[in-house]
Design a binder for these strands. Structure first.
Lengths: 117, 117
DNA sequence: TTCTAATACAACCATTTGTTTGTACGATAT
DNA sequence: ATATCGTACAAACAAATGGTTGTATTAGAA
């Protein structure tokens, strides 16, 4: 498993890219099969350029890659990046468990109600 | 396990809320222990009102809840919502698997290269 | 009661996003 | 060679976001 460190900025871009229904749909479609930008554009009620920009946002977040094929650009979903996002969320779960652990310890020690200073 | 359906708009708000380092830090801290808004505000190099707005974004996404305690508002991270986000990402993984399955089937059937019409 | 701490909320401003239209350019087909 | 298809990219613009300051309200302290 590759545990490369993601900067705050990277994480920002990943989650921001996922915060749009059209972009999530593009990721879904390009995970299932390679699709050209024009094929994607034909699917949504917006201009070609708008779809192009959504793809660019996803590419910037590395959630998809683009590969030239003839005069088309085939878009391919990048599952590794999705998994990295999942690992980020896993970390939240770990923190939450640490809270439970700490509570358990406090209770076991007789809850001395420490003053905050 | 509660599998309540999330609207596109709900999902947008969840991911958008997570697309900011300060907000992710607030979620982390409030998953580990309850923290008041003023305690949070003291931690960041921005105004109280700015932190208040970040908390409001998280609350709107239901990633945290606020509970009055005396004159303070204690902020508490909502792990369930994090888990819902994870389930959304799980779904992408399933789609990707379906692609592999379909490729396997095509290869097994001799790849007839169907026309798109 | 009076003062203060914690919060809520509105108004405002700069920057970013999401979208459009228009122009340009490389690859393919005629 | 010319036309056309798929794409890239810039300019423009409305709307949303992230931040500020200022004012009001409420709960606890003196």
């Amino acid at each position: 498993m590759v545990v490369l460190e993601l900067s705050d900025h990277d994480v920002n871009r990943i989650f921001r890219a996922l915060a749009d229904a059209t972009r999530r749909d593009i990721v879904r479609r390009t995970l299932v099969a390679d699709v050209s930008v024009s094929q994607l554009a034909a699917s949504y009620e917006m201009s070609f350029a708008a779809v192009q920009k959504h793809v660019a946002v996803l590419e910037d977040a590395r959630l998809v890659t683009k590969e030239p094929r003839g005069r088309e650009r085939m878009v391919r979903g990048n599952l590794d990046r999705i998994r990295q996002a999942q690992h980020l969320l896993d970390h939240f779960e770990e923190l939450w468990r640490s809270r439970i652990d700490r509570l358990d310890i406090l209770l076991a020690e007789g809850d001395p109600a420490p003053s905050d200073t």
